[in-house]
Amino acid sequence: MEDLKCENIARYISNIQRKCGTFFLKELAYLGIGYGQFLFLMELYNSDGIRQEDLSEILNIDKGTTARAIKKLESEYFIVRNKDKEDKRAYRVYLTQKALDKKKEIYEVAIKWENNITQNLTIEEKNIMLSLLKKVHIEECKR
């Protein structure tokens, strides 16, 4: 049988994801957070006071993983959780002053990562990449 060679998209995505996790862990270690918590902080910077359950849904992350990330962010004083006034079973997640004070530094790490992985791309290639990733993400989230 002919020797088959297959370039697999998943292989590249997985490799980039691992490198991303390592990069964020190293860059954010001084804050006591890693990539998992970074994702939640970035969403909270856009939606402070969101319900914890909605945060899971928006990020497409299971509730257990969300609970662990929230607990870590609480222990590092980046967020506080308060009972939802309308639904006593739910919690709302709020950024602390520490999180607000560190926002610029955290965004700079995100920009540094993006610059690292796109440094050999033209602006047009970056736009195409972003467009394709969004398209794949949207389709995958529908499933």
Rank of each mutant, 00 (worst) to 15 (best):
N46D: 04
S47I: 02
S47D: 08
D48W: 00
Q52Y: 14
Q52R: 14
Q52N: 15
D54I: 09
S56R: 12
S56I: 09
I58D: 12
I58S: 13
L59V: 00
L59K: 10
N60A: 14
I61C: 12
K63A: 14
K63E: 07
K63F: 13
G64M: 08
G64T: 09
G64I: 09
G64H: 11
G64Y: 11
T65C: 08
T65A: 13
A67R: 13
A67G: 15
I70S: 05
K72Y: 01
K72I: 01
L73I: 06
E74I: 08
E74N: 02
E76T: 02
Y77G: 14
F78Q: 02
I79R: 12
I79L: 06
I79G: 05
V80T: 11
R81F: 03
K83W: 07
D84M: 04
K85P: 07
K88Q: 15
Y91K: 07
R92S: 10
V93L: 09
Y94E: 00
Y94V: 00
L95R: 00
L95M: 12
Q97E: 15
Q97Y: 09
Q97W: 14
K98P: 04
K98L: 11
A99C: 01
L100E: 06
L100A: 11
L100N: 13
L100Y: 07
L100G: 12
D101M: 03
K102A: 11
K102S: 10
K102V: 06
K103M: 00
K103W: 00
K103Q: 03
K103G: 10
E105F: 01
I106Q: 05
I106S: 00
V109T: 01
V109H: 03
I111E: 07
I111A: 11
I111L: 12
I111T: 02
K112W: 10
K112I: 14
K112H: 14
I117H: 06
I117Y: 04
N120L: 03
N120Q: 06
L121S: 07
L121P: 14
L121Y: 04
L121M: 01
I123H: 11
E125T: 09
K126G: 05
N127Y: 13
I128T: 10
M129R: 00
L130E: 04
